[in-house]
C-alpha cells in the first residue's frame, strides 16, 4: 500500500516490439519510475479491443509496482478507433491463437530484456484475454504467474473449435508451467460454473498450483466499470485477490 509521504512516479507510452513472426507491432507500456527491480506483467486486452480500459489496467499494474506491457494484438488488422478495429476482428471470428501466442511471447521477451525487471513475469487477461492468458501459461516459456479472469472458451466443444482457435485450451492443462489464479462470476454464461468446475478439475488432476475465486451476484466482465455487468463489491475483492496473488508469485 502506498504511503502518503512516499515518492511515486510512472512512465506510460506507446512502444514498438517484436511479435509473432518477428513482426514489429505496437504496445502500451506503463512502468514505475526507479531502478527497480520490478516484476513484469503482460496485460492482454480483451476481444472488444485495445481500448481505454486496458490502458488504464496497464497503468494500474504499474501503479502497483509492475512493469506492464499491453501488446496491440490487432496491430495487423488495421488502425482506427479501438472499437472499429475490434469490430473488424469480431467479424473475422477473433484473432488467431497462434498469432496471439507469438505476440505474447514477444512481450515476455521484451520485459525480460529490461535491466529493471526482477526476472519474474506474470500475464493477465479478461474474457478472451483470460483464455489467452491460460493458453500462454501452458504454451509459452518464461511466465511465473497467470491471472485468468473469466476466460471464456477455455473449455470448448468440438463444434466451437474454429480455424482461428483450433484447440481447446483446457487440453493443454498438463503443460501449465506456473501458478494460476482464476476469477469468475457465478452468473456467467461462458464460462459457466460447470465449465469452471471442469477447468478446476483438470488443474487438480495434473497437480497444478491454482486458486479459483467465484463470486455470487456477478456474471461476465464484472471488473468493467463502464459496462452494466460491473459489480463494485465483487470487483474490489477480485482486484485484491489478484494483487495478493501477484505479490506472492512475482516479488
Amino acid at each position: 500500500m502506498y504511503q502518503t509521504d512516499q515518492y511515486e512516479g510512472m512512465l506510460a507510452e506507446t512502444v514498438s516490439m517484436r511479435g509473432h513472426n518477428a513482426d514489429v507491432i505496437n504496445a502500451y507500456v506503463a512502468r514505475p519510475l526507479g531502478a527497480g527491480p520490478f516484476p513484469g506483467m503482460v496485460v492482454i486486452h480483451h476481444a472488444p479491443g485495445w481500448d481505454e480500459w486496458y490502458r488504464e489496467c496497464t497503468r494500474r499494474f504499474a501503479h502497483h509496482g509492475y512493469v506492464s506491457i499491453s501488446p496491440n494484438l490487432y496491430f495487423r488488422d488495421g488502425h482506427g478507433t479501438p472499437e472499429d478495429v475490434g469490430a473488424k476482428v469480431r467479424g473475422a471470428g477473433g484473432a488467431p491463437d497462434a498469432r496471439v501466442l507469438g505476440d505474447l511471447e514477444g512481450a515476455i521477451a521484451w520485459l525480460r530484456s529490461l535491466p529493471y525487471v526482477n526476472g519474474k513475469v506474470g500475464i493477465f487477461g479478461t474474457c478472451s484475454g483470460g483464455r489467452q492468458a491460460f493458453l500462454a501459461g501452458c504454451r509459452l516459456k518464461g511466465l511465473d504467474a497467470v491471472i485468468e479472469c473469466w476466460g471464456g472458451r477455455v473449455v470448448q466443444s468440438k463444434e466451437e473449435l474454429t480455424p482461428n482457435q483450433p484447440v481447446a485450451p483446457i487440453d493443454f492443462t498438463k503443460d501449465l508451467s506456473c501458478p494460476i489464479i482464476g476469477i469468475f462470476g457465478n452468473e456467467d454464461k461462458s464460462p459457466t460454473p460447470e465449465q469452471v468446475n471442469q477447468h478446476e478439475a483438470e488443474l487438480k488432476k495434473h497437480g497444478k498450483q491454482y486458486e479459483f475465486h467465484r463470486y455470487d451476484g456477478a456474471g461476465h466482465g464484472f471488473f468493467y466499470y463502464d459496462r452494466p455487468a460491473y459489480r463494485q463489491e465483487q470487483a474490489v475483492d477480485g482486484w485484491k485477490k489478484v494483487f495478493a496473488f501477484c505479490e506472492k508469485t512475482l516479488r
Binding site: D77, G78, H79, G80, T81, D84, V85, A87, K88, R90, G91, K189, G219, H220, G221, R227, P228, A229
Partner: peptide, 18 residues
C-alpha cells in the same frame, strides 16, 4: 447494455476499419 447482441457492421474492408 447487454452481454451479447446481434451486431451488424456494414463495412468496406478495402477502406479500412473506419
Amino acid at each position: 447494455p447487454l452481454e451479447h447482441a446481434l451486431n451488424i457492421d456494414f463495412v468496406n474492408e478495402a477502406l479500412g476499419p473506419g
